[in-house]
Structure formats: structure tokens, C-alpha cells
Amino acid sequence: MKRGTIPFWVFAALLPAAAYGLPILGMNEYYFYISYIVLQYVVLATAWNILGGYAGYVNFGTGAFFGAGAYAALVVMLLFEAPLVVQIAVAALVGALMGLGAGLLTLRLKGIFFSIATIAVAIIIETFVLNWRFVGGATGVQIIRGPVTYGFETHTRMLFFVMSVLAVASLVIARYIETSWLGRGLQALRDAEVAAECSGVPTLRLKLIACAVSGALMAAAGAPLPLYSSFVEPHSVFSLNYSVMALSMAVIGGMARWWGPALGAVLIASSQQFAAFASPEFHLLIVGLLLIFVVIAAPGGLVGVIQWVGNWRVSRKEINRSASVVK
């Protein structure tokens, strides 16, 4: 077993347990409200990184998948009054199919063309939803929340718990992909696609898997949104801001490891919640500047910085040890 495996699973089990148990401490409801957003961005940034970080395909359509998930959940809620678990499953399925479709259509394209195509997918889906009467068109739709699920006191606490499960699930998946043949194959095709293909890496299949998994997670992150905000409206749900944020969080946190995007998401999303009182625009400005700075000066992001410091300390230790041996 790899080093760090046991602590990882302990953490993976503890986070939802803590999310369920925290309300007993009597914390203010508002903290659950904003923590939900932070966890939602953990899912989005982690999902973005599966395609963007490992495979090197920059997706600008995070908002499209997120929004499609929210609307898929909304539709099954309106049609069948389906419970949240079913809504999330349907949303994930829709997201996976969208990812597959977008992948089949665009993955023959390289780099920038793929990115532009994902913006295209986002705008086209948004336009369809805008013209779709059943879900309220441009004005959106108001949801009447049902009774709270058994075992929870409020909707917010229940959704916070659900989102923490989704966040852990996305981290588990990202970690699995990174350490398995999938991740190695994706990294090979990121660095040299033709060489990877020649060495027998099934590049198209790998990219399609990455697209589907990434899309499914993004859509799943959007699924609880109708219940959370009890109002869904296309412009804000399909907003390009989700794409900006997911990309910035993954890049700033570090794209090489599974915990990089999550770290970026926690830092940026929680600072955003604090900045919301002062100046949201100022926060966006800082994120933009930080993004450009990291891309130029610290390509590894925070992960790279942390690993660099770690290596530096290890090598210092070794120098000291060999110095004492010499004495």
C-alpha cells in the first residue's frame, strides 16, 4: 500500500461524518450556507482538473455542465418529485453523456480549439434552456421545498452534508485516476499525444473517460442547487464565472496532484465569502492577478511550492546527516 493511503481514507470517512455531526455544536446556520459553496467549488475544481490538469485539455464549459446538472435535477424534481439522491444520479448521468458527446465532437481538436468548442457547448445549451418554457425560460423557476429529510434539522444542513459526500467522492475519484493506469495514460498523452498513441496508449478512449467523469462530477455538483437556492435561472446558473473559478482554483492550487485543486478551491472560495462583505470585485481582481502570476512564476501552483519546500527540507536534512558522518 502506498504511503498516505490510510490517512486518506480516514480523512475521507471523517469529513462527511464531521459534516453530519457539526450542527450539534450549535454553529450559526450561515456557516453551513457558505461552506456549501466552498465544497461545491472543491467538486468543480477537482472535476475540472481531471481533464485540464491530467490530460491538458482546458475546459471553459464548467458552467455548462454545472448548469445542465442543476436543470436535470430540476426537471426530474418537477416531473416525478424525485428525491435528491435520484436527482444527483440523473444529473451525473446527463453530465457524463454531455462529456462524452462534447468529447466525441471536439477531442480531435487540439488545445485552444477544444477550449473554444467548450465555450460553444456552454452557450448553445444555455440558449436552449433560455427557450425552454417548461423550466421557466429566461425568467427561471421558483421551487417549493418539501419537508426536510429525516435525520436533518434544516435543508441547508442536509445539503451541506450531501455536498461534503460529493466533495469526498470527487477527491477519491481524482486520487484513483491520478495513481492508476488512467492517470499515467492521461499524463502521457498530455506531454506527447502522438508518442503516447504510438506506444499503445488508447488516447481517445482515455480522453473520453476523462471527459465523462469530469462532466459527471460537475453536473453532480450542480444537482443540489435548485434545493439550495430554491430558485433557478439560466444566466446565473450557466455563468462563465464557474469556468473562471474552477480553472483559477485548479491552476492556483496546483494541477499535478489531486489535492491541489481542492486546496485552491478552499482558499479562494472561502476568501470570496469573506470578501463578499467588502468588495466582490476586488476579490475577482486578486484572483485574476494571482492566476496570471502563478501561471508565469509558479507553474506548479501551491502544490509545487509545498513540494519544493518539502524537498528543500529533506535535502537540508541529508546534507546535515552526511556532514555529521564525515565528522
Binding site: 485540464g52 490538469g53 491538458g56 482546458v58 471553459f60 488545445g111 485552444i112 477550449s115 473562471v244 480553472l247 483559477s248 491552476v251 494541477m255 470585485e281 476586488f282 475577482l284 481582481l285 484572483v287 485574476g288 492577478l289 492566476l291 496570471i292 501561471v295 508565469i296 507553474p299
Partner: peptide, 22 residues
């Protein structure tokens, strides 16, 4: 530049938009 080049211009576009709205 790959991903980073795209992210760089995306960041610039984002900054311009934020600057204009401020």
C-alpha cells in the same frame, strides 16, 4: 505553453472585464 498559455490569456481577459466593471 499549452494549458498555461491559454490560462494566461484567459486571466488577462478576466482582468480586463473586472477592471471595466470596477
Amino acid at each position: 505553453a499549452g494549458v498555461r498559455g491559454i490560462a494566461f490569456f484567459f486571466g488577462i481577459a478576466f482582468l480586463v472585464q473586472v477592471f471595466l466593471s470596477m
